[in-house]
């Protein structure tokens, strides 16, 4: 549809100028072909075409402007607005989710810290209790040992005193026996007095 009129325009002057250029052949390349209406005018500067071009430019450009302003541009603005609002919405949601995640992490860490502190307290308590128990057991054992020691000491003292009591008699008899062996006859009372004075 677009090509046909333009092509027609290419071939039409060929018929008109046919006689003039019939002999010039290929050399006619640079010559301006003669148009019946505007001879020799450079087409873009031909004022005869101005009014029609201005009118059709005004009509086509005006319609184009209205179409873009009323239909295309609101639609494009709408598409871009929807997209940017969707992006902001998604970003907001992402930020909200991140906040939630951060709060969950903080809560978890707090709970962990509390649990650690609780565990420490329980451990300390157990350690203290065990220490106290050990202490009482030790004290009990010590007290027991001391009692036994005291008893043993008492017995030792009694045994010692009773032994000391026997020592005098044994010394007398021994001394008597020694004296009899030496002298033949012993004065028991004298021996006793001598032993007593030595033991004194």
């Amino acid at each position: 549809m677009f090509v046909t009129p333009a092509y027609g325009q290419e071939t039409a002057p060929a018929v008109e100028g046919g006689d003039a250029h019939a002999t010039s052949g290929a050399q006619a390349g640079t010559e301006v072909p003669h148009d019946a209406a505007h001879e020799g005018t450079f087409p873009p500067f031909d004022p005869a075409t101005f009014s029609s071009q201005i009118l059709w430019l005004a009509i086509t450009f005006g319609l184009f402007y209205l179409f873009l302003k009323r239909v295309v541009m609101p639609r494009l603005a709408d598409i871009l607005d929807t997209r940017s609002s969707r992006i902001t919405q998604d970003l907001d949601q992402a930020a909200k989710l991140k906040d939630e995640a951060d709060a969950a992490v903080a809560a978890y860490e707090q709970e962990l810290a509390e649990a650690k502190a609780g565990a420490n307290a329980i451990g300390q308590q157990a350690r203290d209790a065990a220490k106290a128990e050990a202490e009482t057991a030790r004290k009990k054992v010590e007290a027991n040992l001391e009692k036994k020691l005291a008893e043993a000491e008492v017995r030792i003292t009694s045994i010692k005193s009773s032994a000391m009591k026997d020592v005098g008699a044994i010394a007398e008899s021994t001394a008597t026996a020694i004296v009899e062996q030496l002298v033949g006859k012993a004065d028991k009372a004298g021996v006793a007095a001598a032993v007593k004075s030595i033991a004194g």
Binding site: S24, G25, A26, A28, G29, E31, P33, F42
Partner: peptide, 10 residues
């Protein structure tokens, strides 16, 4: 002849 017209740049 058609060639001559097509070559015309104006």
């Amino acid at each position: 002849m058609a060639t001559a017209d097509k070559v015309d740049p104006i």
